[in-house]
């Protein structure tokens, strides 16, 4: 079994117009910058994919990665918990102009909705957001004297994440807090695409250390020395940059 693919273009080839795409990362930690930029390259060459629904904790920062994807005009709707950042101008301008849709989800609810999607649980109850504007229109139920809000699962056509180490079977480890949403998103998509900083032979990752088992992963591409959003933003980088 070999899930590795030859290049970034092949890695993101399964994303089509109107799809729902989960993108891993919390801020820049765990964000698959190279996969996102490959998707932007395809859009600039072909006009596709567009009208995407993107699920991420944030709405990008600066003009690289997720912010660049939004800036390119490929995103119809964003599902996230915190669409503010040090430099949120790309999302903010489109949102205030009514050109991008936002579904605001409390962070823990976002994580659990994604986990539920991957685990085959269509709905669950959580205390989070009870009695607030974000619970409007959602069923409420009482369990053992406390009120809870019903939330639905989130699933995606494709997930893009960054991992630290992968093997050809798709087993993954992550680096530090770059783990965040990534293991959950790997579970919740029909096709999970992973950029790993290192791809090692099967057997080289200790089974005790595997965080995401390969069953949740369809494509793996090695990106040694991946770019980090915070470093790019400190350098005022813009993707795709001046031609």
């Amino acid at each position: 079994m070999d899930k590795t693919v030859a290049n970034l273009a092949t890695a993101v080839a399964g994303i089509e117009d109107g799809m729902t795409v989960m993108i891993g990362g919390f801020g820049g930690a765990g964000s698959p910058i190279e996969l996102i930029h490959a998707l932007i390259d395809r859009f600039r060459a072909t006009g596709h994919p567009k009208d995407l629904t993107i699920i991420n904790n944030n709405a990008g920062n600066g003009h690289v990665g997720l912010a660049a994807l939004i800036e390119a005009g490929m995103v119809r709707k964003l599902v996230c918990s915190f669409p503010r950042s040090a430099d949120p101008v790309v999302f903010t301008d489109l949102y205030l102009a009514g050109k991008i849709e936002l579904e605001l989800v409390p962070q823990g609810t976002l994580a659990e909705r994604i986990r539920a999607g991957g685990a085959g649980i269509p709905a669950f109850y959580t205390p989070t957001s009870f009695g607030t504007d974000l619970a409007k229109g959602k069923p409420v139920a009482e369990f053992e004297g406390r009120s809870y809000v019903q939330e639905r699962w989130l699933r995606a056509d494709v997930t893009l994440v960054k991992a630290e180490t992968a093997d050809p079977q798709g087993n993954l480890t992550y680096r530090a807090a770059a783990r965040n949403f990534n293991p959950l998103m790997c579970m919740a998509a029909a096709e999970t695409v992973v950029q790993a900083s290192r791809v090692v032979p099967a057997g080289d990752i200790d089974p005790e250390s595997v965080v995401t088992p390969g069953i949740f992963v369809q494509k793996v591409i090695e990106c040694a020395n991946p770019q980090q959003e915070e470093d790019l933003n400190r350098a005022n980088a813009v993707y795709p940059g001046v031609a």
Binding site: S81, P83, L96
Partner: peptide
């Protein structure tokens, strides 16, 4: 949130209070 103006953002605040 201080009201309907601007971009709403909630993060983990609603989870942490429970």
């Amino acid at each position: 949130s201080t009201g309907p103006k601007g971009v709403p953002a909630v993060g983990g605040a609603m989870d942490l209070v429970h």
